[in-house]
Amino acid sequence: DHDVVPEDKFQETLHLKEKEGCPQAFHALLSWLLTQDSTAILDFWRVLFKDYNLERYGRLQPILDSFPKDVDLSQPRKGRKPPAVPKALVPPPRLPTKRKASEEARAAAPAALTPRGTASPGSQLKAKPPKKPESSAEQQRLPLGNGIQTMSASVQRAVAMSSGDVPGARGAVEGILIQQVFESGGSKKCIQVGGEFYTPSKFEDSGSGKNKARSSSGPKPLVRAKGAQGAAPGGGEARLGQQGSVPAPLALPSDPQLHQKNEDECAVCRDGGELICCDGCPRAFHLACLSPPLREIPSGTWRCSSCLQATVQEVQPRAEEPRPQEPPVETPLPPGLRSAGEEVRGPPGEPLAGMDTTLVYKHLPAPPSAAPLPGLDSSALHPLLCVGPEGQQNLAPGARCGVCGDGTDVLRCTHCAAAFHWRCHFPAGTSRPGTGLRCRSCSGDVTPAPVEGVLAPSPARLAPGPAKDDTASHEPALHRDDLESLLSEHTFDGILQWAIQSMARPAAPFPS
Rank of each mutant, 00 (worst) to 15 (best):
D255E: 05
P256W: 14
Q257Y: 15
L258M: 14
H259A: 07
D264N: 03
E265D: 10
E265I: 10
C266M: 06
C269F: 05
R270S: 10
G272D: 11
C278I: 05
C278M: 15
A284Q: 00
C289V: 08
L294I: 09
P298S: 06
G300Y: 13
T301Q: 05
R303P: 14
S306T: 12
C307V: 14
Q313V: 04
E314K: 11
E321L: 11
E321H: 11
R323P: 08
Q325M: 12
E326H: 09
P327Q: 07
V329W: 13
T331S: 06
G336S: 09
G341V: 11
E343H: 14
E343T: 10
P348K: 10
P348N: 11
G349P: 06
M355D: 07
Y361S: 08
L364E: 05
L364Q: 14
P365Q: 14
S369N: 12
A370M: 14
P372K: 10
P374L: 11
P374W: 12
L376P: 13
D377E: 11
S378R: 08
S379W: 15
A380H: 08
A380M: 10
A380R: 09
H382Q: 07
H382Y: 14
P383M: 15
P383R: 06
L384E: 06
C386S: 05
C386E: 10
V387A: 10
L395Y: 11
L395R: 09
R400P: 05
R400A: 04
V403F: 11
C404V: 02
G405K: 11
G405E: 09
T408I: 11
L411R: 12
L411M: 00
L411P: 02
H415L: 11
C416Y: 02
C416N: 01
A417D: 15
A419V: 09
F420I: 03
H421K: 02
W422D: 08
R423Y: 15
H425A: 10
T430R: 10
S431A: 09
R432H: 05
P433I: 13
T435A: 10
T435P: 10
T435L: 12
L437M: 06
R438M: 14
R438E: 07
R438A: 03
C442G: 03
C442W: 01
S443M: 09
S443R: 07
D445K: 09
T447D: 06
A449P: 15
S458L: 08
S458R: 05
S458D: 07
P459D: 01
R461L: 04
L462D: 15
D469H: 12
T471Y: 15
H479Q: 03
R480S: 05
L483F: 15
L486Q: 06
H490N: 13
T491F: 02
F492N: 01
I495R: 02
L496Y: 05
Q497V: 00
I500G: 03
A507N: 10
A507Y: 09
F510W: 13
P511F: 05
